[in-house]
């Protein structure tokens, strides 16, 4: 059987859902960040798939930019994470509720 667009989109949806579940359910902020990466990559995958399907270079360009931005964003996110850890001595986000109203 051939791999069609739907397969890619299905995979993308699965990855996206796993990512969202990870973000919503895990306590460890590192895992949350990793789950965010999964969401990113699900989106990238669907972009790449559509680019190939529509034979348009635009999607590829989007993907490259998105990965670049994601890398930068992960760097910033990890830096904040390290700073938070140093300050609060914890990586569990249910303990990081200082901002409640």
């Amino acid at each position: 059987m051939t791999v069609t667009l739907n397969h890619y989109l299905l995979l993308s949806m699965v990855l996206f859902s796993i990512g969202v579940m990870g973000v919503l359910l895990r306590r460890n902020i590192i895992i949350v960040l990793m789950s965010l990466e999964l969401i990113f990559n699900a989106a990238n995958l669907s972009l790449a798939a559509f680019s190939y399907y529509l034979q348009s270079i635009n999607g590829m360009v989007f993907v490259v930019f998105s990965i670049t931005v994601a890398a930068a964003e992960v760097a910033v996110g990890l830096a904040i994470l390290v700073a938070v850890f140093r300050f609060r001595k914890t990586v569990y986000i249910d303990e990081l509720n200082q901002m409640r109203g």
Partner: peptide, 18 residues
């Protein structure tokens, strides 16, 4: 009422978001 929404839990926000 509105203060109740601001739980401070990141995941609450994310859940509402989703």
């Amino acid at each position: 009422v509105w203060r109740g929404l601001q739980t401070g839990y990141l995941q609450n926000y994310a859940l509402i978001f989703v």
